[in-house]
């Protein structure tokens, strides 16, 4: 992955905006921002952002590549779409934020310990495996992602909710052993592989 980062730096030199336009989902919209800030103000998690969307757009234009791609900010997006609804220039801001996060991840620049990134990765690995989420496995992995001790701790904290879910049939207690994947697991894997190929080719991640 580090190689991909180096090759992108080579390819776009100082022009981070062009790099974003070419490689980031909906990146071609970044240039349309007029710095009104309504996205940043409308975001329910706004106060938690180090760099709110409109500032990220300006940083992209100013070529602050590392600062943007290593930022925790775009990982804050919860897809509420408030920003998209309000943007006077109709920028798909939510999508751009996810696109940037994804791109940073692909380049290996995303903050390793960012919880959203880690959740997303665990979630993705989980769902991609069988084509369907294994809820118990997902929960376990999330609880234990920081080690056994904290996993047990978290499990205890959540035990009432867990028991409640078991009682109401919302959680399969045997999920770890008897998870039902989707019908054509092979087909799903084949489809995903193809999708990766297409995306990589489109974005120039492979020669």
């Amino acid at each position: 992955m580090g190689d991909l980062n180096t090759s992108m730096i080579e390819k776009y030199r100082n022009d981070f905006l062009k790099e974003v336009e070419a490689n980031v989902e909906e990146g071609q919209w970044v240039k349309m921002c007029m710095q009104c800030g309504v996205c940043s103000g409308s975001c329910p998690l706004g106060p938690s952002w180090e760099h709110p969307p409109q500032e990220i757009f300006m940083m992209i234009r100013a070529g602050r590549r590392d600062e943007v791609l290593k930022s925790e900010s775009m990982w804050m997006c919860t897809s509420c779409y408030n920003c998209i609804v309000r943007c006077p220039r109709e920028l798909p801001i939510t999508h751009i934020m996810h696109g940037l996060a994804n791109y940073a991840h692909r380049l290996g620049l995303a903050p390793k310990m960012n919880p959203t990134r880690r959740f997303a990765k665990i979630f993705w690995d989980n769902i991609a495996k069988s084509g369907r989420v294994n809820e118990l496995e997902l929960s376990m992995r999330l609880y234990f992602m920081d080690g056994f001790k904290s996993g047990v701790q978290k499990g205890l904290e959540m035990k009432d909710i867990g028991i409640g879910m078991l009682k109401t049939g919302r959680l399969n207690p045997f999920g770890l052993f008897a998870h039902k994947g989707c019908k054509d697991i092979k087909g799903i894997h084949k489809m995903l592989k193809k999708a990766y190929e297409i995306e990589d080719r489109k974005k120039g991640f492979v020669a």
């Binding site: 905006l17 240039k31 349309m32 007029m34 710095q35 300006m58 234009r61 100013a62 220039r89």
Partner: peptide, 14 residues
């Protein structure tokens, strides 16, 4: 006209 320029890739910096 402003939007058209942005679409064409003109960068605006305050």
């Amino acid at each position: 006209f402003y939007r058209s320029a942005q679409r064409k890739g003109v960068t605006f910096t305050k």
